[in-house]
Design a protein around this nucleic acid. Structure first.
Lengths: 235, 235
DNA sequence: TAGTGGTCTAGACCACATG
DNA sequence: ATGTGGTCTAGACCACTAG
């Protein structure tokens, strides 16, 4: 269980101290040498840990000046999207904890432009024991939808499960992102105030025929999630 | 000029061999030990170079198997390229009306993780006479930044202007999106209530060396903007 | 001037993939 | 069995920041 690399363990320890507020924005982090001494690790290992936090935007480093917690601590989790497969990676990293499964009502389907019969899975996106990263609704075409127990036993993503068990190929995904205010009930589930800003992402998964076989909507409260993508210019 | 760190020089050398086609997708790269021997560098330096290429998605590394050039974007997978141009398209459609140009203060640069001297252009994104779509700040490296009049005369995007007038190539753009609440001043400029949710997008434009030469931050109030993207699975 | 992070070297042991 | 990349140690010199 604790077979994670040492530098990663160190990084997670520092990350926790930042996210819990023990280290507030602007505060100095231990210097590299201090980390080496107190933790009994080499400088390379300490730097590797600090590199992770730097890439996550949690800390700022300046030669000669030291390391401080970033002013606006970046969300604990950022999704990097480079290509199609990265979306699936996100689904694996951030575990979907399903809380209810039921037939979707017509009103909800209408609002999202879905036609036909769908199952609705409602739950939370979670990474380890942190507060939930998102409130998520997943609509799956009724005739191929997994049941409640199956979803919570999944090690991968729902779309991967669909492809594996129903010989379905998802060839196109459209994703929409916008800012919204959380309703009272949504906010309470996520443990934030009503009207808190949230990033709403809607993904529509289509098969080769262009038909929508799955739709997921996630509400990420401000500060818990950022969506990051990298775009390369062809050569 | 050639005072770039050794590992970066090594990375650029390998990058060139890949981009010129000397190393084609799937081809084996030299092993770490081979790089050490032929270039007379330490393993740490070689690994640092390979790490850059890994983060850029140019190569794939597998323990025991070696390092290979990543598969070329499949024909149908003009995704990254398409997205890149789409960003510029957005910049052309939504005109940037600059309201002020000044040197960026250290605090603002710090908060965004920028080092060096930058000019700050503040303004609005507008389509025709509609209410502004976004409140935008653009940071441009001071030595190449356009002045106030130039910006407002531009027909294209700022990044295009940089490339055209300074012989600069922007090869990588990272974009980050998250939900935030607008401050009072931000809200009043946009004509909405304070605390209105907004989609915050930050784009970092990098040259071939990985240096950030431009950064833009846009605040899109809820309801005025949504970001939509399409992802195709390569075959 | 003292201390910081940035770079670099020269070792070592390990888990893993391949033949 | 060999060689790969992944991790880790113990040093070193440098450029830069700050007191």
């Amino acid at each position: 269980m604790t077979d994670a690399p040492l530098y990663r363990q160190v990084a997670e320890g520092l990350r926790r101290r930042i996210l819990t507020g023990e280290l507030t924005p602007g505060a100095q982090l231990p210097t590299e040498m201090a980390l080496c001494d107190t933790l009994g690790i080499s400088r390379h290992t300490a730097r590797e840990a600090l590199r992770i936090l730097t890439e996550d935007g949690l800390i700022l480093r300046r030669r000669g000046a030291g390391t401080v917690v970033a002013e606006a601590p970046a969300p604990a989790f950022a999704q990097t999207l480079g290509d199609f497969d990265d979306i699936l990676q996100y689904a694996r990293d951030a575990r979907f904890v399903c809380q209810s499964a039921e037939p979707a009502d017509a009103e909800a389907l209408d609002a999202l432009g879905l036609t036909g019969e769908f199952s609705l899975l409602t739950g939370l996106r979670q990474v380890s024991q942190e507060p939930p990263m998102a409130l998520t609704r997943v609509f799956v075409r009724a005739d191929i939808a997994p049941d409640f127990e199956t979803v919570n036993r999944l090690s991968g993503s729902i779309s991967e499960w669909l492809e594996a068990t129903h010989a379905i190929a998802i060839t196109r995904v459209t994703q929409r992102m916008e800012a919204v205010a959380l309703s009272g009930t949504q906010a309470s589930v996520l443990g934030v105030r009503a009207e808190t800003p949230a990033l709403r992402t809607i993904r529509r998964y289509r098969d080769t025929g262009g038909e929508i076989i799955q739709l997921s909507e996630s509400l990420h409260p401000a500060g818990r999630f950022a969506y990051e993508m990298r775009l390369e210019r062809g050569q």
